[in-house]
């Protein structure tokens, strides 16, 4: 025992997060520089922004479906709440002269609105065990969509507009990093271990002292918050939103990205969102046939790689160790370089 602690305490405290920090800074610099010097055309920038937004959506859904093992199929509903929340805040609440400076406030408002609404879903559906969440979230997404369609203040089925195009590449990069960082931190904490243990065996988790109801509600709210953030960014990218953007197809897309990249994996969420978004762009000439391909991909995935590319595995860069370099280095569960 002492041997392990000695190496742990006196061993080199070289942080595995240092390279990560370099990547983040470089990425942020690039996200400013590339568009500024006109090195990317508008279309490529749009695709990159979409990738960023989809990464946020994927990590958000992965937290519930992959890490916690519950099954939410209506995440587009939370995205819609976030989109409308952020849009209304920035059009009707924030004075126009504040411009882009108030953009984070609008996004936060969207995220908080989604998190708040998620409590109405989470609290009753987590009162019981079992698969109620899937049914409740599906119903919830439909309710949100038809509620929005019938609210004339928000433009009804015609949609809502008037937002400025605040969503730029650096902003998306910032929110993407923030989402990934926060969810990664959450996963590598006592709450996160609670989340994972719920997926593995809820009864054993409860009997080990984990307040499973609290953990589930908290996790669901956090997940919805980031879905809302993604919605806010989406609204300020297109400058126009309408209820039919957030239909079942949107929820399905999120599910595909999660199960493509890998359940219970942060690296997998990035991978899944990137591959899927770019693939859909490359296949744009296929037109509506893309929507045929999409479920086919999902079916093949479930057959040959049910946990996705990175299922339950993590890139070492994302792993947090309370005691760095403790004894046996991460193996088995973790893959990656160094």
């Amino acid at each position: 025992m002492m041997k392990i602690f000695r190496t742990a305490i006196h061993g080199q405290p070289a942080g595995p997060r240092r390279p990560m920090l370099a990547v983040i800074i470089a990425g942020f610099a690039l996200s400013i520089a590339l568009p500024y010097f006109g090195l990317l055309n508008k279309y490529v920038i749009f695709v990159l922004i979409s990738v960023g937004i989809n990464v946020i959506l994927t990590i958000s859904l992965n937290l519930v479906n992959g890490f916690m093992g519950e099954f939410s199929v209506g995440h587009a509903g939370f995205m819609a709440v976030g989109a409308y929340g952020a849009a209304v805040t920035s059009v009707n609440v924030i004075p126009r002269w504040m411009g882009a400076a108030a953009f984070p406030t609008a996004i936060l408002a969207g995220g908080l609105a989604a998190a708040l609404v998620s409590l109405f879903v989470a609290i009753p559906s987590f009162k019981t065990r079992g698969d109620y969440l899937a049914i409740v979230t599906l119903a919830f997404a439909m309710i949100v969509k038809s509620a929005l369609e019938n609210m004339d203040v928000l433009g009804g089925p015609r949609g809502f507009m008037g937002m400025q195009q605040f969503t730029t590449l650096p902003w998306v990069f910032f929110w993407m990093v923030l989402s990934l960082w926060a969810i990664r931190n959450f996963v590598y904490s006592a709450y996160g271990r609670g989340v994972l243990s719920i997926r593995e065996d809820e009864t054993a988790s409860e009997l080990s002292g984990v307040d499973t109801r609290k953990v589930k509600v908290l996790t669901f709210a956090l997940s919805s918050f980031f879905a809302g953030v993604a919605g806010g960014l989406y609204a300020h990218l297109l400058q126009f939103i309408n209820p039919s953007m957030f239909d079942v197809i949107k929820s399905t897309e999120m599910l595909i990205m999660v199960y493509l990249g890998g359940v219970g994996s942060i690296a997998g969420s990035i991978l899944g969102a990137s591959i899927y978004t770019i693939l859909m762009e490359v296949l744009r000439p296929m037109g509506v046939w893309r929507m045929v391909l999409m479920p086919a991909v999902l079916i093949l995935l479930m057959i040959f790689r049910p946990r996705g590319i990175m299922g339950l595995r993590e890139l070492r860069w994302f792993v947090y160790k309370a005691i760095p370099h403790s004894g046996a280095a991460a193996k088995g569960q973790n893959i990656g370089n160094t």
Binding site: R193, G194, L196, E200, D201, A204
Partner: peptide, 19 residues
């Protein structure tokens, strides 16, 4: 036996320290 199968041995114990 009802362990958290996919979690590491260390995490199985750390889960129980939730409170």
């Amino acid at each position: 036996i009802r362990l958290f199968k996919e979690l590491t041995v260390l995490d199985n114990v750390r889960v129980a320290k939730y409170a």
